[in-house]
């Protein structure tokens, strides 16, 4: 077989064979693509973060058992892995990676950005996190401990960023609009 054929053609060839064999339909593939393209994304995580900022009881539950705490949102995604939420404070900054591939908390953040899957990020964030974060534009003081969380088959991590100053009177919807994807991966701090 020609291993150098264009991936677009190879993907199409695989799809046509799977459909012929009755293993999956084009409509089912469409549905998965549409779900991840249009419906599941960082807005889910932002709603979780906003609620945690507003509701101390929810925040406590979220940090204790992320999977159970987000059940009330009934997010789509079919993610069965355990969700662990790690909290940023004045003293501790958390950042998430998957050193082996691209594991990511899909149900709350959607599919990962390109750089998250990049070999450079995957290896360097573990070796020199402070420097990599600086390249993202995030300068952390020496007094801040950086914790790097390596996602796995079983556990997916999400960062609970610190609430930005001046947000105390915001509604929950306004708060969630302030939360960025990058802050929930841990490569950004909300100002």
């Amino acid at each position: 077989m020609d291993d150098h054929s264009a991936p677009a053609i190879r993907a199409e060839a695989i799809e046509s064979l799977l459909i012929e064999k009755g293993l999956i339909s084009a409509a089912e593939i469409d549905e998965v693509v549409e779900r991840y393209n249009d419906r599941i994304g960082p807005l889910n995580g932002a709603r979780v973060v906003a609620l945690a900022w507003r509701d101390p009881e929810f925040k406590r539950a979220l940090l204790e058992d992320g999977t159970a705490a987000i059940a009330r949102f009934a997010f789509e995604g079919g993610q069965t892995e355990k969700l662990v939420v790690v909290e940023n404070t004045d003293r501790v900054h958390n950042v998430v990676v998957c050193t082996l591939c691209s594991c990511y908390p899909w149900s709350v953040l959607g599919l990962p950005p390109r750089w998250y899957k990049d070999p450079a990020y995957r290896s360097r964030i573990v070796r020199e996190p402070r420097r990599v974060l600086r390249e993202f534009g995030l300068e952390l003081g020496d007094e801040v401990e950086i914790r790097v969380w390596d996602s796995s088959a079983e556990v997916r991590y999400m960062v609970l960023p610190q609430q930005p100053a001046g947000a105390a009177r915001d509604s929950e919807a306004e708060l969630s609009a302030r939360v960025t994807r990058d802050s929930m991966i841990g490569v950004e701090v909300l100002r």
């Binding site: 991936p7 695989i14 693509v33 599919l111």
Partner: peptide
């Protein structure tokens, strides 16, 4: 095609 691959 990337979406198709993911969808499959």
């Amino acid at each position: 095609w990337q979406g198709r691959a993911f969808g499959m």
